[in-house]
Amino acid sequence: MNAPHIHLLLNHFPTVGFSIGLGLFVVAILGKKEVLKQASLVIFFMIAALSITTYVSGNDAQAEIKDQPGVSAPLIDAHESAALVAFIFMQATGFFSWIALWLQRRVSRVANWNLAVVLALSIVTFALMARAANIGGEIRHAEIQSAQETAETSTGPTLAKSWALFVQSNSWVWPTCETVHFIGLSMLFAVVLVVDLRMLGIGKRTLSFEALYQLLPLGMLGFTLNLITGIMFFVATPQQYTGFLFFLKMMLVVLGAVNVLYFMLLDDPWKVGEGDDASITTKLVAASAIVIWIAVLFCGHMLPFLGNSF
């Protein structure tokens, strides 16, 4: 299995997966079904997480096929630009879906503003993603290439290239993003350590899971800072982020997303009150969260040493 193959596999999540989520979400809102709302929010959140791997695998796929005959370089650029915009909206959808999921458990129902934001973002994301997928399909399928779109692609620098140029010509941007990336990392670790170490027994006498649940947005905020700065690094210098190590980091982030959903959706951790021991399953999931996020840090940190960065 090579890089284009992986990209082709993963690109079904943001298109097919997301449309299933959107359909379900509309049904849930019309039918006022809380459990369906929750299901579609979970789909949006997980598809957003999986889209990270889809987006970065496109970079590897490009590196592998760009010099092959029959591959249109301007179309790859157009696909990349369209995908970047769609990806950003997808992440915004995922973020507000997470907030809605969090509130659903915290105050037992999702606020209407929150549902409206998710609905609006998901419709825009769906349209943008369909456009990106359409252009992507044309890269290798000359028979569906339309002359008009080919012409469109050759005008001006892409969004990604303008950003890369901006980073190159302003030496303060990279260190600033790095600093924010480290601050975000600390915020994420804050929540991962306190919530998961409590599940493993530290401070259990006076800490319930329900109380700790209130801390989760701090970790999500840290993760969001790192996602934003991470996209900034990646888009500025995509050539640094090809290869297995970075892809592994992104897959571990998806695992981290699954991990937090365990704590947000299942009753098992929720029932851990003051003085209670968590179940063995919850302890294992808690321990794996710490391992996952340290592994994410490891992969990122080792990029200059084991990967091809810098």
Partner: peptide, 14 residues
Amino acid sequence: HTIGMGFVVGINAC
């Protein structure tokens, strides 16, 4: 050093 930072600043942040 980076992991240690996550521990120190993380617990402090909470």
